[in-house]
Amino acid sequence: MQKITTCLLFAGQAEEAMNYYISIFKNSKILKVTHYGKGAPMPEGTVMTANFELEGRQFMALNGPMYKFSPATSFVVNCETQEEVDYYWDALVAGGKPSQCSWLDDKYGVSWQIVPKQLIQLISDPDPVKAGRVMQAMMTMSKIVIADIQRAYDAN
């Protein structure tokens, strides 16, 4: 068992959200699902917790009181290629909403950042002019397009 597990609180959608996430991430699995019993704050038989693993990291989805997710907490998906960026972006933004600079909210309101490794490399360049051009290009995007940030980096 991992020492620290992220717990996501859903208003009756814990199992649905777990199944959604494991359908997107190829290296994932359901670990355990528990249900509320008699006298619980939710109807008997309702899923209480849904424990699952995405890419080797454990999560718990909990059905409980209604709270809203905030971009103050987000999950970063590090990507190697544009195809990977496109895959995760398209899958996670479906039913949700895009934001700026690689951020999106999925259909449950959970915030994600879909980040190509090239963005981190180029934005960290020791040449502040080149890094600044990449930053400016990124600020105009929702989903990051690697070719476009590379063009900004290479511009004279």
Results as ranks from 00 to 15, higher is better:
I22C: 02
G96Y: 06
L31G: 06
R57K: 15
K68P: 08
M135T: 14
V145W: 06
N19M: 10
K117Y: 14
M1Q: 11
M60V: 12
M1V: 13
I149K: 00
S28P: 03
K107E: 02
R133Y: 10
P98T: 09
I149R: 00
P43R: 07
V134L: 07
G95M: 01
F75T: 13
N27M: 07
P126F: 13
P65Q: 15
L92I: 02
I144T: 00
F25K: 01
K117H: 15
G12K: 02
D90S: 07
P116G: 09
E55P: 07
V77F: 04
L62Q: 01
K143D: 00
L8I: 06
A17G: 06
E83G: 12
A17D: 02
M1W: 10
E16R: 00
D127A: 15
K97W: 03
E84M: 08
L92E: 08
I22T: 11
S70E: 04
Q118M: 10
F69E: 00
Y108Q: 01
M60S: 11
E53T: 03
A14E: 04
G64R: 04
E53D: 13
S102M: 09
Y88D: 01
G37L: 12
M60C: 02
Q58R: 07
G45S: 05
F75K: 07
P41L: 06
S28L: 01
F10T: 05
P126G: 15
I123R: 12
L62P: 03
M42F: 15
F75Q: 12
K38R: 14
Q2P: 10
N78T: 15
D148F: 00
Y20F: 10
S111E: 08
M18Q: 06
V115M: 13
T34V: 09
S99G: 13
T34D: 01
D86F: 07
Q58M: 09
N78E: 15
Y21C: 02
H35R: 15
Y108E: 02
